[in-house]
């Protein structure tokens, strides 16, 4: 349980948000040319990092907008929050 500073609404309880998993997984540009291995990699394989991880979150019970977060999964400390489409901060 922690507070999240939504880039549109400000600081709110984590309960209002929905976690959307690992960020910056780009949808393949040529899906028809992908091998089964590449599809598996895109669909299922995750870094699942213990430490600093880039994630997507959605303010589900607020503005309903998506945004990105950099969070340390070993202690739930939020390092940075940035809007969709913005460049991720260097870590």
């Amino acid at each position: 349980m922690f507070l999240i500073k939504c880039p549109y609404c400000g600081e709110r309880d984590q309960q209002e948000f929905k976690a959307g998993g690992e960020a910056h997984i780009e949808r393949p540009k040529q899906p028809t040319e992908l091998s089964d291995d590449e599809w598996a990699e895109y669909l299922f394989m995750r870094k699942n990092i213990k430490g600093v991880q880039f994630e997507r979150w959605n303010h589900a019970h607020g503005c309903r907008k998506w945004f990105n977060m950099v969070r340390d999964t070993s202690n739930d400390e939020i390092k940075a929050i940035y809007k969709m489409g913005e460049k991720p901060p260097a870590q």
Binding site: F44, M45, R46, K47, N48, K50, T73
Partner: peptide, 18 residues
């Protein structure tokens, strides 16, 4: 829960979320 951590050491990725 730490399977991905060990997998990363071997350069593997697993379809897991902890």
């Amino acid at each position: 829960g730490h399977s991905s951590v060990i997998a990363n050491m071997a350069g593997l990725r697993l379809p897991l979320e902890s």
